[in-house]
Design a protein around this nucleic acid. Sequence first.
DNA 1: ACGCTGGGCTAAATCGATATAGCATTTGTT
DNA 2: AACAAATGCTATATCGATTTAGCCCAGCGT
Lengths: 344, 344
Amino acid sequence: MLSMKGISIKDIAKQAGVSPTTVSFVLNGKAKEKRISEQVSKKIQKIATRLKYKPNQLARGLRTGKTKTIGLIVEDIANNFFASLAKVMEDEADKHGYKVLYGSTEDNTEKAKGLLEVLKYRQVDAYIVTPTKNLDKEIEQLKATSKPVVLMDRYFPHVSSHYVVVDNYQGAYNVTSHLANQGYKKIAIVTITSDQIQMKDRLDGFTAALKDHHLPYNKSLVKKIPFELEREAFNTEIKKFLTSVKGIDAVFFATNYLGIYGIESIRSLGWEIGPQIGVASFDDHDLFRLHSPSITCVAQPITEIGKNIVEVLMQELNHPSATPRQIVLEPSVIVRASSDPGKK
Amino acid sequence: MLSMKGISIKDIAKQAGVSPTTVSFVLNGKAKEKRISEQVSKKIQKIATRLKYKPNQLARGLRTGKTKTIGLIVEDIANNFFASLAKVMEDEADKHGYKVLYGSTEDNTEKAKGLLEVLKYRQVDAYIVTPTKNLDKEIEQLKATSKPVVLMDRYFPHVSSHYVVVDNYQGAYNVTSHLANQGYKKIAIVTITSDQIQMKDRLDGFTAALKDHHLPYNKSLVKKIPFELEREAFNTEIKKFLTSVKGIDAVFFATNYLGIYGIESIRSLGWEIGPQIGVASFDDHDLFRLHSPSITCVAQPITEIGKNIVEVLMQELNHPSATPRQIVLEPSVIVRASSDPGKK
DNA sequence: ACGCTGGGCTAAATCGATATAGCATTTGTT
DNA sequence: AACAAATGCTATATCGATTTAGCCCAGCGT
C-alpha cells in the first residue's frame, strides 16, 4: 500500500534529481551554508511542499538525539489544577514544535520512578516533573543526562534544580491572616500527610499567621490525611477531626481536593459555612466560585505558571545555563463568602 | 560523557561475546524459535539485567514501524470530563506498554487537523479522537493508513469507524422525562451551536421527551451558543435566553460547562433553583454534587468508557477486525435537589 | 602549464534496533 | 561412508534522517 509509507527525503531527492544529502541541507535551512545553488534549493522546496513532506521524527530523533517531545509527570491529570496546567503547557510547547507525553504519579514514588524510566528510554528531550517524596535521587541522576528538568508545584530544597512554584508560605499566611482578620479565633488546618516542601510551606505559613495574630496554636489544630484514601475515608477523617476540636470556628484546607472533601464533610455535619465555621482552601475551582456560600481560596496563577515552566525549559534546551532557574510566583487570596462570619 | 549514552544492544553483545543479532533474538523472546542455546540465552539475559538495558524506542520504532504510542485528541484536556477520561486511558494504555501523546482541539477543526498531522509524522500506532465538525475526511484517510482509530464522545454517522460513546439520546430523554415527571411544564434546553451527533442526539432526546409528556415544544425553547465564547459572554447569552422565555420553569444544559455557566447565570438572576426553575445538566461534576441545591445530571460512566476505548484499540492493534466496533454505553440520571419543585 | 581557491554537490557512515538469508558444525540416516 | 537434516549462531541490509569528509570542476594567478 502506497498510502502506508510517508514521503521520505529519498522520494524528493529522486524527483529533484539530486542526492538525499542535498535535500536534507535545503530543508534544514542550511542551503547557504552548504553552498547549494538557489535553483536547486527552490526546486527542492517546491517539491517538498507539493508532496507535503514531513520528516520522520523517529529517524531524525535517532540520529540527532532530539525527539521534540517533553515528558510531563503530574500528580493526577484528572485534578483540575494539573489538567488546567497541562493545557497551558501543551499550548506553549506546541508553539515551539514540542509534544507532550504525560503520566500521573498518584503521589506514589514507585509510579513516578517508573514514569521517569519510561520517558527516559523514549528519549524525551526534557522533563516537567511534579516530584513525589524521595524522588530526589532520580532528579539528580536526570540532571547528569544533560536533559533539562523543571520541577513544578514543589521541589527539593537540598537539590539544585530548576523549578517553578508559587509562594506557598505566603499564600497560606495571607489566607490565614484573612481568616483571623475576619474575627475567627480558633482556626484549624487540614492537610496531606507529606513532608514535601509545598505542604510544609503551607503549614508553616498557616502557623506563622496564627502566631502573628496571637491566636492559639497547637498540634490538635492540625490534621494530616494520607493522599491515597478514598473519598469516603477522607470525609470520615475530616468529620472526626472537625468535631474533635472544641471551639473551632474556621478551617483551612491545604489543597483543592481537601477543600472539596471538606465542604462535603462540613455540610454533612450540618454546620453553616461562614457564620458557624469559616472556610478557606488552597487552589481555586469552579466549585469554590459557585458554592453557596462561595469559598475563599488561595488561587495559583495557572497560566503564568505554565508559561514560565515551558519558557524555562525552552531556554535550557537552547542555552543551558549554569545556575538553576528558580521561579516563585505569587498566589492571590480570593475573598468570598465562606470567610465571612456575618454580624457577630 | 558516558552517562549520556544508554546501554545498547551492542554493549551487551560485546560483553557476552556474541553478535547483536543473537542478543536481539533473546531479548525479544525468540531464543527458542531462533535456536539459541540455553547457556547463551541465560548469559545474555543476565547481562541485560545487570546493565539495566532498555531498548531505544526510537530505533525500534524506526525499524518496526511501532512506537507503542497512542495519539489522544480531546476537545479540552482542562475539562473535567476529558481529563478524567485521559487518566483512565493513560492507566489502561500503560498496562499494555503504551504511552499517550495528547492534544486539545478547542472544538476547532483546523487545530484538530494540525494535531492529526503532527501525530501522524510522529508515527503514533493508534488514535483516540474526539472529532470536530468536518473532520470526517481526515478520519477516513486515517483508516487507509491501517492505524486503528477510535472515536470518542461522538462520531460520524456516515463514516464506518470504531467508536465508544454513550447513548446521548436516551440520557437526554431520561433526564427530560424526569423533569416532566417532577411537574415542570415549560422546559428549555441550552446547548452548543453544533451539528455534531452527540449534540443532535441530546437535543432530539430532549424534544422527544417533551413530546411524549405532552409538553409544549418550539424553537424558542432551544438556545444554541457557540463553543468559543468567553465565560462572560456565555453568562450573558444564557441570562438573555432564560429571561426571554415566558413561563419557563425548568432548563436542561447539554454539557457540563454549560451547566456550570448556567448555574452561575441563574444565580445572578436571583432565581431559586428547584422551586422556581428546575435544572439538570449533562455530565456529572463535583460542583453539581456539592452545589446548593445539588444539581440533577446525566452521568457518563467514565471508567467504563475509558476502558472500552483502550480495549478496542488494543484488539485492533493485535487483530484488526473487518467490521467496526461501535460501543454505546448507557449514561445514568442522577436525581438531585435541583429538579425538585417542592410543594407547589 | 601548474597549482590554488572556492563553488556545488554527493558518497558513505551513523544512530540502535530488527529481519532475512545463510554459514559452519554436529547429529542422524541408510 | 556419504549425504541430509538439524543446531547454533552471525553478516548484512534496513528503517529515514543527519553529518562528515571529500570529489569534481571552473576560474584565477603566475
